[in-house]
Design a binder for these strands. Sequence first.
DNA 1: GCCGTTTTCGGCCCGACTGTTTTCAGTCG
Length: 546
Amino acid sequence: MQNAALARQFDQIAAYLELAGDSIFKIRAYREAASAIADYPGPIEDADLNAIEGLGSATIAKSREWFKTGKIKVLEALKAQYPAGLLEVMRVPGLGPKKVQLLWKEKNIDSIAKLQVALDADELDTLNGFGPKTRENLKTALRRLGELTSRTPLPDATGTATKILTALIERSPDAHIEIAGSLRRGAETVGNLNFVASSEDATPLLDTFAALPLFETIIARDETTVKARLHDGVEVELVVAPPVRFGTQLWFSTGSKSHIESVDAPPAFTSEREVFAHLGADYIPPELREGRDEWERARAHTLPALLETRDIRGDLHTHSNWSDGVASIRQMAQAMTDRGYAYFAVCDHSKALAMTNGLDAFRVREQAHEIAEVQADFPNLKIFRGIECDILRDGTMDLDDELLSELDFVVGSVHSAFNLPLAEQTDRIIRAIQNPHVDLIGHPTGRVLGVRPPYDVDVPALIEAAKKTGCCLEINASERLDLKDDYARIAKDAGVLLCIDTDAHSPKMIPNISFGVATARRAGCEAKHLLNTKTLADLLEWMRHR
DNA sequence: GCCGTTTTCGGCCCGACTGTTTTCAGTCG
């Protein structure tokens, strides 16, 4: 399977062309080719490229060139023309191709490190377009970027861990290996990846692991452990324990540190359940092992019966090709059926988000016809008419109340004016919470893990407001995990109903629900704390009383 | 660069915000 590697070539071409200031349509074409290749279900090297939508004569020729030579000349030429560091400078919020080019040509800045030095030394004040405000904004952006990218978001870390596991199992089919560490605990971001394996003889497995082609270097090795580094800098550790102490090792490697240090070190056990039994406690799910009150509760047999992914009966925030989704309503319906869901809501963007081809009143009503058509062919799946309606700067909704009242489910979301002062941003969203047509606030703090920090907003105040009106708050799965676990816990404790949605823009995003479930579990949520664990009948009843 | 024709090139992702520009370019969602 070379899909990911080839897709990466085209993504890189797109990034360089963006830097070069090339046509945004050409750039988009390369990005679409990359995602078509990444999404292709089989090995791309065996595919009929002409039959893949998004690939044309130019990208097909480049694909064949890459299959044959392992390189694409156009990309090599671009790499020779621009230092690789310019691409990372492009990722700084506030810097686009023009400003990056200027920094490079005028000040020889071709890395984030050099940009930081130049900012600290006040070397940019003579540069056109870099006034005092811009320089200050850049300093803030760099600080935030450092915080944002120092750890890997849960979804990405899960993908990487799966890749490593797959590669290892391919080479050692009989190995018994588990994911441990903060990834197993479902933390929103992950520092290192930890694995624990069970084997009488550690050496062969450690050899196999150390030889995986995924690693850049092996950092350390002893008789039980190999520590390696991936190309993106993430450290990966495999500990091999004999079967008689696998349970203890898994518990230990899962952490957290404060959870482990709260008790005396247990002796060797085969399973984690024996570890907890030895410590006089019920089994504590990994998501709760954060050194809060889990030991007391586990000893008093009062741990919550945490939500499971199988408790989720539908997805109430999804997109289609009516706005910026890539799949038709029918394709999404099929994917929801395949997953075994009882219902889902089509919630495309509203008109304020023009870039996404957001829907105005006319198209919202047009879409109803298509939903009805598809619904007729899916008797066992309820398709709700929904919208992800922009909450405008002043807290009013992008579409009027009369239209919203026609819809089954209304998600209100902020996609603009992220930099309002705390009080103003909070009031804006509370106003949406108080709109009787708004059923759910989507991604309430606006963050995107590794990309964008949350806007300034008083989340406890939102929770209070939601409690009063009965509006739900979202745990947006996927790349946001918003609300985050701590806020979700506060909302749950306040009696606010939460809803885990994927915000899926394609069928392949639908399984992301599990990341939201992990977040809810860390918040101590049981099935009853979620809106979309309701049966269809109960959900319809809930909607009637909204 | 891809697509879809109206077969040979035009349309595709638009509108608002921001800072510094002295009338608008660059960036972003």
